[in-house]
Structures are given as structure tokens and as C-alpha cells.
Design a protein around this nucleic acid. Structure first.
Lengths: 206, 206
DNA sequence: AACCGATTGTGATTTTGGTCACAGATTTTC
DNA sequence: GAAAATCTGTGACCAAAATCACAATCGGTT
């Protein structure tokens, strides 16, 4: 069961639903879009729902856009030697993406999957590119979003390169506690480049 | 000793030096800047030279821009438990960067160092931001460059997360052979998250 | 040419974390 | 609510890689 709070202007005209306000707040952190531009952005977003275990993107297919997670959890994984290696997790208010396929227009080697019942906005590649053409603001938003994603990616590379198993667990505890609560240990182990059993034993010691 | 070939227009007026043509070619891959915009870009680039072992950026300092490597090699490393952990290498025609400090304006935890005598163009943070304001083209260039960097970063994360030591070496052989030729094994070992001795033994077996 | 520092190779040893196996526990499904 | 599937915990064992130690080699400098 779910209610969408509707914000109205002085004339009682509906403005934004609750979901849209969540997106607005997330985008406002980048300090780029004004009201008009946000409306333009919103007008090309499609609201979608995925049940747990449904795929947003399957390997072999082309990536047709990016997702903004309103509620739920999305996982990004790649099948390597028959093992699901999770490369990222996207929680509420984050943009779920697989950029390699999106930017190079090659079939994706990776999968996006709903790890719980999930609601999200979808922005297609086509619409995204049109936004980029439309105004410098959307290019700027894209640029800043990428800077943000890249900094996060550098951090996880650092974890994999330099930290010992116990330190990797501490990293989760301190920097991404929400993952520890929401994601099965098995998936987290692959994310951290460890055997499931190793991570289980580390946790037992706490 | 070094010659710069000068390209001249019909009136014999100098256009671009050899170094500038190298930069032009690198930027043209992104298919964004026209002649005027490239000239604008160039006008805020400063030519610099660094001797081997000189620092382009020292940890603790603020990152004041990005570098385009004309010739030579630049390394990005972080001191962890007294060890130099190399996180990236930048060869000719690549943009050497440390984006965390650049984008968040916090003191850098990382170092940029010339691993050989190096010539490059420097673009200051201030000038970069002014370019971003100036035209959508520069935003677009930034966005595309970040997409490119991010795809590369995802790949190295994959290597660290999923590949065994021998496979990591193979990755270098196949995907980044220039590193194997130009960079000391010690540095490559840290880059791959391996002990120096392990990498040495792997190489001995080939 | 001789020196010094940096880099690499290699053996012996130790340790860590992976693998295997199986039992509980927890969720999902019908 | 029972069955099935998924997830987690834990012990025993093993293999791979880290560590330690030292020699050899390479590169640049005076």
C-alpha cells in the first residue's frame, strides 16, 4: 500500500508527486537544474516497478538507459566462471547504471537485477541524449553525476587493491552500512572480492 | 633536443606546433570541439616539463587542475602503510588526473609523479571551470572524457575483484602492454594488488 | 670505471584465505 | 503449513600468495 503526497500550487493545481519530490531532492544536490529544466527531465522519466529477482538489464542485451531507484535495491553483477560477481549495489535515491554498454553501444556483459521489490524512474538512452542536446544544464548534470560516480568507483578500487579482508568488512561497516543491512552476505562477499565463508567468519568475530 | 613542426596557413602564418597537434588529435576522438573551441582550449593550456621523479601533485595539497601528457609517463599513487600503492599510470596522449581532490576541493591523499622525463600541458581548475561556463561543448567534452575514464576504472576494478594473479598479468599483456614495457615491475605489482615477488615469478614462467 | 641506489630474481618459510563438505537457519513458493 | 530453495555458519584441509632474506642486475652519476 502506498500514498503519493501531492503538492499543489496556489490554484490547487497538482505539482509533484512524492516520488517526483524524491528525485528532485536527489538532483538538487548537484545544484544544476532550475524548475523548468527539472520538469523537462521529469517529462521523459518513466515510472516503473520491478518485483524481486526481475532483471532490469540482461547481459547480451543493449543498455537502453539509466534508472533512478525510488525504493528498493538494485544489483549490478557479471557472471564469471559461473559465479555471480556483484560489482555494485544501488539503494534508494541512487542512479542505477551500467555505463559501458550505455556509452559505447555494445551488448552488455553485465546484469542489473532487482534485489527486492523496487520502484524507479527510467530514462531511456534516446531521451538522455536529447536532453544533452537541449541545454548545457543537462550536460552539466551528466558531468557532475559522472564525477560523483567516478569518485565512488575509485574508492572501491582502493578497497580491492589495498585492504585486507577484515579491513574490507570495516569499510562496509563505516562507509556503506546500508549494504550490510540490505544485501545477502553472499553477494557482499563477491563485491569485496572474498569467499563467502571468509566474510562469514569475519562477521562472526564481531 | 626537440623540434616542433609548425603548420602554417596560406599566408605563412603559424598555426599549431607539433605538441598542439598531438593534443588536437587526442581531443578529436571525442568529436566535440570545433576549431575555435580548440583554440580557446589551447589558449588556457600551459606547457610544462617535469624531470623524472618530480611531483606534479603531492598529497596534502589541493589539486589545481589536470594534465595532458605529451611525452613521458606519469604515475598516480597513494602511500598506504608506508607502501607506494600505484593506482594508475598515464602514458603519452592521456589525461593525468586526480579527480577526487579536483572535484571536491579537499586536500589530495594521492600523488602524481613523473616516472620519466615528461612534457605536458596543464589546465588549471580555474580555467577548466571557466571553460565549462563558456560553452556546452566543453561540458560535453568533460562528460565524454569522464565516461571514458569511468569505463577504464570499472575494468581495473574487475581485474582486482575477479582475476587471479596470473590472469592479472595476462590482462596487462593484452590490454595494457605499454605499461609492461615502461613501468618498473614493483609499481605494476602494487597496481595489480600483488606482492612484487609474485609478479616477478609469474613473469619468469613466460 | 667505480659507486650508489633502485630494481629484480629466487629460495625457504609462514600465513592467509580459498575450497570442500555438511548442518542449520531463514525465506519463498505453492 | 509443508516443501523447496536460498542463505549462513563452521570445521578440516589445502593451495596460493605473502613475507623474509639475500644475491644479482641494472641505471644513472660523479
Amino acid at each position: 500500500m502506498e500514498f503519493n503526497i501531492i503538492i499543489a500550487d496556489q490554484n490547487g493545481k497538482e505539482l509533484y508527486s512524492e516520488n517526483e519530490i524524491i528525485l528532485r531532492k536527489a538532483l538538487d544536490k548537484f545544484n544544476v537544474l532550475n524548475d523548468t529544466e527539472f520538469s523537462d527531465f521529469l517529462s521523459v522519466c518513466e515510472y516503473m516497478e520491478f518485483a524481486k529477482k526481475q532483471y532490469l538489464l540482461k547481459s547480451g542485451n543493449y543498455n537502453h538507459g539509466i534508472y533512478f531507484v525510488i525504493s528498493g535495491t538494485v544489483g549490478l553483477f557479471e557472471l564469471i566462471d559461473g559465479k555471480e560477481m556483484y560489482q555494485n549495489f544501488f539503494l534508494e535515491c541512487e542512479f542505477a547504471n551500467e555505463l559501458k554498454s550505455l556509452t559505447t553501444q555494445t551488448p552488455s556483459t553485465k546484469n542489473l537485477i532487482a534485489l527486492s521489490d523496487t520502484t524507479l524512474f527510467h530514462l531511456s538512452r534516446k531521451e538522455l541524449l536529447e536532453l544533452y542536446e537541449k541545454s548545457i544544464s543537462f550536460e552539466r548534470l551528466g558531468r557532475k553525476l559522472l564525477e560523483h560516480i567516478l569518485n565512488a568507483q575509485n574508492e572501491i578500487s582502493y578497497v580491492l587493491q589495498s585492504l585486507k579482508p577484515e579491513e574490507r568488512y570495516s569499510y562496509l561497516e563505516n562507509k556503506r552500512p546500508n549494504l550490510l543491512n540490505n544485501i545477502p552476505l553472499t553477494y557482499l562477499a563477491s563485491y569485496l572480492g572474498l569467499a563467502r565463508e571468509t566474510l562469514s567468519r569475519i562477521r562472526a568475530k564481531r
